[in-house]
Amino acid sequence: MAQARTKNTVSGDASLIGAGTRVRGRVTGDGDVVIGGHVEGDVVVRGDVTIEDGARCTSNVEGHAVTVAGELAGDVSASGPVVVGATARLRGNVRGAQFSMEDGASFAGRVECEFELPDGLGEDHAAPARRR
């Protein structure tokens, strides 16, 4: 935690919404965003978005890699991987390049994600499939 904060303070384009901070509105721009507090409003960034354990968001989230370890009510749209951590409580649809969910996570929604079928499975479906 201390390391993450140091990194965010030093790095010019990383943002941190601390645990005691509440944002009501829209968060946009470049760079990574780490949310430890409360956000009510959409988060649309070109960098990575991390919703930490203890954070509460009512937001649609758009970013590159999106990691959810806290509470999120809203849709996720990622150009990179989406990771739903063990402590996550996610209600919303997820779209991403990859999707993974850890044991213990709570998730209610739909996943839309391209993936490769294993060898020998469904030659007819070799084209990128959609998993729902």
């Binding site: 010019g12 943002s15 005691g20 901070t21 509440r22 944002v23 829209r26 507090g37």
Partner: peptide, 28 residues
């Protein structure tokens, strides 16, 4: 150590309420 940092590339349109200190490098 700042608990909230609004980075240089980030814009927040709305309301920011913090218990701890805030560093603004971007736009609010």
């Amino acid at each position: 150590m700042a608990s909230t940092v609004i980075g240089a590339g980030i814009t927040i349109e709305g309301e920011v309420t913090a218990d701890d200190d805030v560093v603004v490098q971007g736009t609010i």
